[in-house]
Simulated assay, not measured.
Amino acid sequence: MQRRASHILPVHTSGPTDLRDLDRALPDEVPVALVYNGSTLAVMMASPGDLSDFALGFSLTEGIVRSAQELGEIEIIAHDKGIELRMWLAADRAEAVADRRRAIAGPVGCGLCGIDSLDQALRSLPSVGVGTLLRSRDIVAATEALRNAQPLHDETRAVHAAGFYRPGDGILCAREDVGRHNALDKLAGALSLQNHDPSYGALVVTSRLSSEMVQKAAMIGAPVLIAVSAPTALGVRLAEDAGITLVGRARNGRFDIFTHAQRIDTGGPQ
């Protein structure tokens, strides 16, 4: 059973002087269960597209596997009320599932709901590599290119996007979802499957830079994370510790560099 990414629904639209009946495209969201070795680890409300990317990306950014090779065949099982992503792990990686155990449901806006302990919410992160030097024009080009790689957002105006930008190549890959964490997980899976090295480029997202977005970027191994919105203070602290260059409020030709500014050549003092 294939689920559609969007649906056309009727709406009453009110203007200054009139009320009209129109049709609007709205994105779908469904419960997606991530099931490892027969046990459900998490259920996320997500867009029903690019689910193989989502399964792999979630597994990578949550530290359940270290590479795509550690994850076997992904089964996508559609039910009337949602979708199961069934995956199988070797015994040693199954232990990682216990370490990242979540409660059954996690809503779209929250990537930490149901975590068993505070230690897991602020887990240790790997340090990223040196990365590629970016210029100011790359920051501007990355956000502009991502805007042109969001067909579901163009249709619905109601989803987030995450993309991978490389200087000279533009956006090499982009994924969309109703949840910002899900979009980044889908991108992580796609990058792994397409053999793109995240250390030679930048992640670009349409959302705020919350702590978990920074955590996922570190697990992906991306040295630069760019967003059109602002970061949280905790997101900045985590990026500083992980060695990630955090760029926020990147829009209209301007941006703020919050951490590790040495990777961005602005033409001024570093």
Score class of each variant (00 low, 15 high):
160 H>N: 09
25 A>V: 09
227 A>L: 05
190 A>S: 05
121 A>W: 09
58 F>A: 14
239 A>Y: 05
233 A>C: 03
124 S>M: 05
91 A>N: 07
212 E>I: 11
201 G>R: 03
17 T>I: 15
63 G>V: 09
142 A>Q: 06
27 P>V: 09
184 L>C: 13
203 L>T: 06
33 A>H: 14
20 R>K: 12
178 V>E: 01
150 Q>K: 11
221 G>T: 10
173 C>H: 14
151 P>C: 03
197 D>P: 06
109 G>D: 06
180 R>K: 08
64 I>F: 09
166 R>S: 07
200 Y>M: 10
209 L>K: 04
142 A>F: 08
246 L>V: 05
186 K>C: 09
1 M>K: 06
188 A>Q: 01
95 E>Y: 07
72 G>L: 07
154 D>M: 13
75 E>N: 11
128 V>A: 08
256 D>F: 15
214 V>A: 01
83 I>W: 02
199 S>W: 07
105 A>Y: 10
181 H>G: 12
269 P>N: 04
266 T>A: 14
135 R>Q: 04
173 C>F: 12
76 I>S: 03
120 Q>R: 12
15 G>N: 07
159 V>M: 03
182 N>V: 13
118 L>M: 08
55 A>G: 04
84 E>M: 06
149 A>E: 03
37 N>T: 10
142 A>V: 12
175 R>W: 15
58 F>H: 14
74 I>R: 02
205 V>E: 02
183 A>Q: 08
72 G>M: 02
61 T>H: 06
124 S>N: 15
203 L>D: 01
230 A>C: 09
79 H>C: 13
81 K>I: 10
174 A>R: 12
245 T>Y: 14
128 V>R: 02
97 V>W: 04
16 P>T: 12
223 P>K: 02
97 V>C: 00
44 M>V: 08
162 A>W: 11
245 T>L: 10
199 S>M: 15
131 G>K: 02
134 L>W: 05
220 I>Q: 03
156 T>C: 02
7 H>P: 06
21 D>H: 15
255 F>R: 03
177 D>V: 15
185 D>V: 13
